[in-house]
Lab assay of single mutants.
Amino acid sequence: LSDEDFKAVFGMTRSAFANLPLWKQQNLKKEKGLF
């Protein structure tokens, strides 16, 4: 994903996403069907 796409899908920047706990990152990915 480009940075723009990433922001559109997750509603946050990559750095904000990277600061989330791993389980939360994985839950978000599953919610968005990216897993």
Results as ranks from 00 to 15, higher is better:
residue 21 P to N: 02
residue 24 K to S: 06
residue 21 P to T: 03
residue 23 W to C: 11
residue 13 T to M: 03
residue 9 V to S: 06
residue 30 K to T: 09
residue 24 K to W: 08
residue 1 L to T: 02
residue 15 S to E: 13
residue 30 K to P: 05
residue 31 E to Y: 02
residue 4 E to K: 15
residue 6 F to W: 09
residue 15 S to K: 09
residue 7 K to V: 09
residue 11 G to T: 04
residue 33 G to H: 07
residue 20 L to G: 01
residue 27 N to C: 11
residue 21 P to L: 00
residue 25 Q to D: 00
residue 24 K to Y: 06
residue 11 G to K: 08
residue 3 D to H: 09
residue 27 N to D: 14
residue 18 A to K: 06
residue 31 E to S: 11
residue 29 K to D: 09
residue 30 K to M: 11
residue 29 K to T: 04
residue 2 S to Y: 02
residue 3 D to S: 12
residue 18 A to W: 03
residue 24 K to D: 13
residue 23 W to E: 15
residue 25 Q to L: 00
residue 28 L to T: 02
residue 34 L to K: 10
residue 32 K to M: 09
residue 20 L to W: 00
residue 13 T to N: 08
residue 4 E to W: 14
residue 32 K to E: 05
residue 13 T to W: 00
residue 6 F to I: 02
residue 16 A to L: 05
residue 6 F to N: 00
residue 19 N to H: 10
residue 6 F to T: 05
residue 8 A to T: 11
residue 34 L to F: 01
residue 7 K to G: 05
residue 30 K to E: 11
residue 22 L to H: 14
residue 14 R to T: 05
residue 10 F to K: 02
residue 16 A to I: 04
residue 27 N to M: 13
residue 14 R to P: 09
residue 30 K to S: 06
residue 5 D to S: 14
residue 10 F to S: 04
residue 16 A to C: 10
residue 16 A to W: 02
residue 23 W to T: 14
residue 17 F to C: 01
residue 1 L to C: 02
residue 30 K to R: 10
residue 22 L to Y: 12
residue 17 F to R: 01
residue 16 A to K: 10
residue 11 G to P: 01
residue 26 Q to C: 13
residue 24 K to N: 05
residue 18 A to C: 07
residue 12 M to C: 10
residue 31 E to C: 04
residue 4 E to V: 05
residue 9 V to K: 15
residue 12 M to F: 11
residue 5 D to I: 04
residue 9 V to M: 14
residue 22 L to E: 14
residue 31 E to V: 08
residue 23 W to R: 12
residue 32 K to Q: 08
residue 30 K to Q: 13
residue 6 F to L: 03
residue 6 F to E: 01
residue 6 F to D: 04
residue 9 V to N: 14
residue 24 K to V: 12
residue 25 Q to I: 08
residue 34 L to E: 15
residue 6 F to P: 03
residue 28 L to A: 06
residue 30 K to Y: 08
residue 14 R to D: 03
residue 16 A to H: 09
residue 14 R to K: 07
residue 5 D to T: 09
residue 25 Q to G: 01
residue 33 G to Q: 11
residue 32 K to N: 06
residue 7 K to S: 03
residue 18 A to V: 10
residue 28 L to R: 01
residue 30 K to A: 12
residue 29 K to R: 10
residue 2 S to E: 05
residue 3 D to C: 13
residue 8 A to E: 10
residue 35 F to Y: 11
residue 18 A to D: 12
residue 15 S to R: 06
residue 21 P to C: 00
residue 22 L to I: 13
residue 7 K to W: 07
residue 10 F to G: 02
residue 16 A to N: 14
residue 13 T to Y: 01
residue 15 S to Q: 12
residue 6 F to A: 03
residue 26 Q to I: 06
residue 19 N to R: 12
residue 23 W to V: 12
residue 23 W to G: 11
residue 30 K to N: 07
residue 3 D to T: 12
residue 25 Q to N: 00
residue 2 S to C: 07
residue 24 K to H: 14
residue 17 F to K: 00
residue 14 R to S: 05
residue 17 F to T: 01
residue 28 L to P: 01
residue 12 M to N: 00
residue 23 W to F: 06
residue 15 S to T: 09
residue 9 V to F: 05
residue 5 D to A: 09
residue 35 F to C: 05
residue 34 L to C: 09
residue 26 Q to A: 13
residue 10 F to A: 05
residue 23 W to Y: 15
residue 26 Q to N: 14
residue 7 K to A: 09
residue 19 N to T: 11
residue 26 Q to F: 13
residue 24 K to T: 07
residue 33 G to L: 06
residue 26 Q to W: 06
residue 33 G to P: 11
residue 2 S to M: 15
residue 27 N to L: 11
